[in-house]
Design a protein around this nucleic acid. Structure first.
Length: 655
DNA sequence: TGCGGCGGCGCC
DNA sequence: AAAGGGCGCCGCCGCA
């Protein structure tokens, strides 16, 4: 019987954990351990160790014998253990491969990641301990005024109880969950090794951009303040300005700032609304001027420079711990945080352009279209170390390949043939709809595979500057569905299989290349979808409502004080098709990363269908070829899925 | 002052 | 009946 020890550190530091991240936090000299609770999961034995106390002999033995050491957000506890507990307090070393993350286990079970939210979702016996977070504020961060840490022994003792409680809550919670598979555990490890390596940011650029943005923000705010007589002082106060517009905008323009959400009419000054207003000749000059300022002031992406600076290791300029394994509970895709690599503006400068802009900023010169220019420096602020370049490889049209492959249908195979032959899928898509517009073929291909209609097409069309009337789009939607009957058939097949599985517990129901099975004993009855490589995605608290299957929507939680049931979602065909497509693509990425890390490729980042390698100049050409080979070699479980990738070299990250 | 809700925005 | 969904972060605002 394998031995599992769970642990939970309470620490203090002058570093702010939330903004600086666990790696900067744990490695800072001001960070120290207050206490740690331990629990032997097999016999329930608990220990509370306070910093400075002698470590109990039976605890040392348990740690030495443990096959697995668990923690909630294990990267944090592992870092504290390795930076402080082992070297400073003499705890026995724990090999990296023994660490297991129970937060990751929550996400694999499609639950929220945080201990508190996951316990709420599962109705595990656990109340949110507000006193606990207040204690942490008192003991773990220095007092704002005095700069001293509170060392009150009574408070310390209460924190100890809180700390012990958390490990009990963790054990209670995980007893309800499916174990992570061996592949999941491997991939969690792979992710942590990538996090260990980190990715370098150009701190000089980030600081220049940060300062420039602050200056610009102030100038825009001042201009706005003058124009509005001091009523609005920041470009981000759009709600305030909406109040003004509601009464002062010419009546006939009101529809442009109105939208309907869930049957409710709301006012908005979002990008689309601003663009429509600015395009209208009836907009009074005064209002035009103000909206134009607000439009220029979309600063949120610029704030990412600050995040980079905060998260980077002060000695190496590398950001560690940005990637979260299985961050997206529903699909198993990665997420990233802090340095958020998954939503950086694509529109960016290349290395040569970036160099010029940086030089201009250094010289104190003004930039054209400043906010936009700063946004275009975001990707290029990610850089390889000296003597290295990036090799970036991305899979071409991965979802457009995976979906038809998963359908295991003749129609799906015909689509795959297009890829195998190297033809242009967007042209072929257009032709199949009796059209000759590649752009329409592209948008249709990208937007209509998962059951979406006019709305889905239009949302995607906007990204490609394509404007068509809704009735025209309805024709495109119909034509695409006529040309791809395998897709609609597959959506219905998935929906029926899910329903059949819930009606017949413990019975495997296939649909295309996936299988559904309903397990009543896990999380209020969990519908599981088994993907072609045996990875499982889950739908907890599944049940039949109005003839279809619904499940808990873990990504949205009810308000803290409400007794409402957790939000639910309907498992309709398009949704299921999308989930399995994204999840299967994520499996491909995870397997690629595992292979690459095992074979010593210098992986520093990735983005759903893309890997980023930081390669020595002398090895660039070899790596370029090898990267392509690794990416185009389909794993054994999908030998007949054609994969295509053409990696490129970058001196700075770009697109 | 800190927290959570909400609107908004970015990407795959 | 029809349906685009998966994320994380920023900033404002109201509340305690």
């Amino acid at each position: 019987m394998p031995i599992t020890v769970g642990l939970d550190f309470e620490t203090k530091s002058r570093i702010d954990l939330k903004t600086r991240g666990a790696d900067v936090y744990a490695s800072d000299p001001s960070t120290d351990i207050l206490m740690c609770s331990f629990i032997n999961k097999d016999n329930g034995q608990q220990w509370l160790w306070n910093a400075g106390e002698k470590i109990p002999a039976d605890l040392v033995m348990a740690l030495n014998l443990a096959d697995e050491v668990e923690a909630h957000n294990a990267r944090f506890d592992q870092l504290i253990y390795e930076y402080i507990a082992a070297p400073d307090y003499g705890f026995p070393l724990i090999p990296a491969e023994k660490w297991v993350c129970t937060a990751a286990q929550c996400r694999v079970n499609a639950l929220p990641s945080s201990l508190d939210k996951a316990t709420r979702a599962t109705n595990a016996r656990h109340k949110k301990d507000n006193a606990g977070s207040a204690l942490i504020r008192k003991l773990c961060v220095p007092d704002k005024k005095t700069g001293e840490f509170n060392t009150d022994p009574a408070l310390h003792e209460r924190l100890g109880k809180y700390c012990l409680q958390d490990s009990v809550a963790m054990v209670a919670l995980t007893s309800l969950l499916r174990e992570m598979s061996e592949i999941d555990k491997r991939d969690w490890q792979v992710n942590e090794r990538i996090n260990d390596r980190g990715i370098k940011v150009d701190i000089e650029l980030a600081k220049l951009a940060q300062d420039y943005a602050a200056m610009e923000k102030e100038a825009l705010g001042a201009a706005l303040s003058t124009l509005t007589g001091g009523r609005i002082t920041k470009v981000t106060q759009t709600l305030k300005y909406l109040e003004v517009l509601k009464t002062e905008l010419p009546k006939k323009l009101l529809p442009l700032i109105t939208k309907t959400v869930d049957g409710e009419t709301k006012y908005t000054l979002d990008k689309a609304a601003r663009s429509q207003l600015l395009n209208s000749p009836d907009l009074p000059a005064h209002q035009r001027h103000i909206i134009d300022l607000i439009d220029q002031g979309g600063m949120s992406s610029v704030s990412k420079f600050t995040a980079m600076i905060n998260r980077a290791d002060p000695d190496t300029d590398r950001v560690h711990g940005a990637f979260t394994f299985w961050g997206a509970g529903q699909t198993g895709r990665y997420t990233s945080q802090g340095l958020q690599l998954h939503n950086m503006k694509r529109d960016c400068f290349d290395a040569t352009e970036a160099k010029k802009v940086i030089a201009a900023m250094r010289a104190g010169l003004g930039l054209d279209d400043p906010i936009n220019s700063l946004g275009k420096l975001l990707r290029p602020a990610i850089i390889p170390a000296k003597g290295h370049k990036f090799v970036v490889g991305d899979w071409s049209a991965i979802e457009a390949r995976v979906l038809p492959w998963l359908s295991d249908s003749d129609g799906g195979r015909e689509v795959l043939e297009v890829f195998i032959n190297g033809d242009d899928i967007y042209v072929i898509t257009a032709e199949s709809m009796d059209m000759d517009d590649r752009q329409i073929g592209k948008v249709a291909n990208l937007s209509l595979g998962f059951g979406g209609g006019v709305g889905a097409f239009q949302a995607m069309a906007k990204n490609y500057g394509l404007t068509l009337d809704d009735d025209v789009v309805q024709g495109v939607v119909n034509a695409w569905r006529d040309a791809n009957p395998w897709a609609g058939k597959f959506w219905r097949e998935l929906e029926r299989a899910a329903l059949k599985a819930v009606r017949n517990p413990q019975t495997v129901v296939p649909a295309g290349r996936v299988k559904y099975i309903y397990i009543p004993k896990i999380l209020g009855g969990t519908l599981m979808c088994i993907l072609p490589n045996d990875t499982v995605i889950q739908y907890p608290y599944a049940r039949i409502e109005k003839g279809g299957v619904t499940a808990m929507k873990a990504s949205v939680q009810p308000k803290a004080d409400s007794t409402d049931e957790w939000p639910r979602k309907s498992l309709w065909g398009g949704f299921l098709a999308e989930n399995i497509t994204q999840a299967t693509a994520a499996c491909l990425l995870k397997e690629l990363l595992a292979d690459m890390v095992a074979d010593d490729f210098p992986v520093v980042g990735h983005c759903h269908d893309e890997v980023i390698l930081e390669v020595l100049d002398s090895e660039i050409e070899d790596t370029l070829l090898n990267c392509q080979q690794y990416m185009e070699q389909s794993p054994a479980w999908c030998e007949d899925l054609p994969l295509k990738a053409v990696p490129e070299i970058f001196e700075r990250y770009g697109k």
